[in-house]
Simulated assay, not measured.
Amino acid sequence: MQRQGSIGGSAAIRIRATGGVLLVAHLAFVAWLTLRPLDVPWVLPPNLHPFAGIRADLALGWPEAARRIAESVGLLAPLGVLLPAVHGRLWAFPLASLVRTVAAGALVSLGILLLQTGVPGRAPDIDSLLMNTVGVALAHLAVVPAARAWLRRRSERRASAAVRQEEATQGRTPTFPRVGIAP
């Protein structure tokens, strides 16, 4: 049984399967990147003050600040596209889809932040949680609505082409005029 508003047919299976494989691969890469121990002579204290790390990055100057902020925003940004792809709905309310995706991205980022407390050489940073969540939201807003609209148009064109072909092979369905009730 197919869910209301989900992508139909084999295209749905391919999109969901591809999205699932890419999601698992991306999360494995993120886990490897953020949870492996670092061999450093000292560890910075945890940053639990929002925007303190961003202000410190901005104090470093333009190119270095842009690189650090872009890395933080881009780390979990693919989740903004992969999570809706795994879900597979074409007809989803855009705000609800955004909220679900951003909440899931924030929870993944929070999980990473909590796991980093036990990893040697890693210090949790609340700004990474904020920037990762912003990255998920930006990627979702930039890609998902346009991709869903394109897929909806594509499926509508295919459905109308199938109807036209069926009419051509079977002939047009006869229509009968409405007959009113006799006095």
Score class of each variant (00 low, 15 high):
Thr117Lys: 12
Arg122Cys: 02
Leu58Pro: 02
Ala28Ser: 08
Ala59Leu: 07
Arg178Val: 07
Ala104Gln: 06
Glu64Phe: 09
Val43Asp: 12
Ala56His: 13
Leu60Asp: 05
Ser109Asp: 04
Leu113Trp: 13
Trp62Met: 06
Ser72Asn: 15
Pro174Arg: 03
Asn47Cys: 07
Arg100Gly: 11
Met131Trp: 04
Gly118Phe: 03
Gln170Cys: 11
Ala92Met: 11
Arg36Lys: 15
Phe51Met: 14
Gly5Gln: 06
Pro37Ile: 04
Ala52Ile: 06
Arg55Trp: 13
Leu82Thr: 00
Asp39Lys: 15
Gln165Phe: 01
Val102Cys: 05
Ile112Cys: 04
Gly74Arg: 08
Pro174Glu: 02
Pro78Ile: 00
Ile15Cys: 02
Ile69Gln: 09
Leu98Asp: 05
Phe93Ala: 06
Ala92His: 04
Leu35Gln: 15
Leu79Thr: 00
Thr117Leu: 12
Trp32Glu: 12
Glu167Asp: 14
Pro84Phe: 00
Val99Cys: 14
His26Pro: 04
Arg152Lys: 14
Ile54Thr: 07
Val102Asp: 00
Pro45Trp: 11
Ala66Leu: 15
Ala147Phe: 09
Arg55His: 12
Gly135Val: 01
Val99Ile: 15
Val40Gly: 03
Leu95Ala: 11
Ala104Ile: 05
Ala96Ile: 07
Pro50Arg: 11
Gly74Asp: 12
Ala162Glu: 15
Val144Gly: 00
Ala28Glu: 04
Gly111Ile: 07
Gln165Gly: 10
Pro50Leu: 10
Arg148Ala: 04
Gly88Ile: 02
Ala103Ser: 15
Leu129Gly: 01
Ala103Phe: 09
Leu35His: 14
Trp91Gly: 01
Arg68Trp: 08
Asp39Tyr: 06
His140Val: 03
Ala66Asn: 02
Val144Met: 14
Gly111Pro: 11
Ala159Met: 09
Gly9Asp: 01
Gly105Cys: 06
Ala17Ser: 15
Leu151Cys: 08
Val136Met: 07
Leu33Thr: 05
Ala162Thr: 05
Gly5Arg: 08
Leu113Ile: 07
Gly171Ser: 01
Val144Phe: 04
Thr34Ser: 10
Arg100Asp: 07
Asp57His: 11
Leu23Ala: 00
Gly180Thr: 04
Leu113Asp: 12
His140Ser: 03
Ala59Glu: 08
Val99Pro: 09
Pro145Trp: 15
Gly121Trp: 03
Pro145His: 06
Ala12Ile: 00
Arg148Tyr: 02
Gly180Met: 09
Leu107Thr: 01
Arg100Gln: 12
Gln4Asp: 05
Gly20Trp: 05
Gly135Arg: 10
Trp32Asn: 08
Val163Arg: 10
Thr34Ala: 13
Val24Phe: 08
Arg67Trp: 09
Gly19Met: 05
Ala139Asn: 05
Leu44Lys: 15
Glu156Asn: 07
Leu76Thr: 00
Gly5Phe: 05
Leu114Pro: 08
Arg154Pro: 03
Leu83Phe: 01
Pro46Asn: 06
Thr133Gln: 10
Gly111Ser: 09
Leu90Met: 09
Ala56Phe: 13
Ala28Leu: 13
Leu48Glu: 15
Thr101Tyr: 03
Gln170Asp: 14
Leu90Lys: 03
Glu167Leu: 15
Val40Gln: 13
Val24Leu: 13
Ala52Val: 07
Pro46Lys: 07
Gly111His: 13
Val102Ile: 11
Asn132Lys: 01
Ser6His: 06
Leu48Tyr: 10
Val40Asn: 06
Leu58Asp: 08
Gln4Gly: 01
Ala70His: 10
Leu90Asn: 02
Leu114Asp: 05
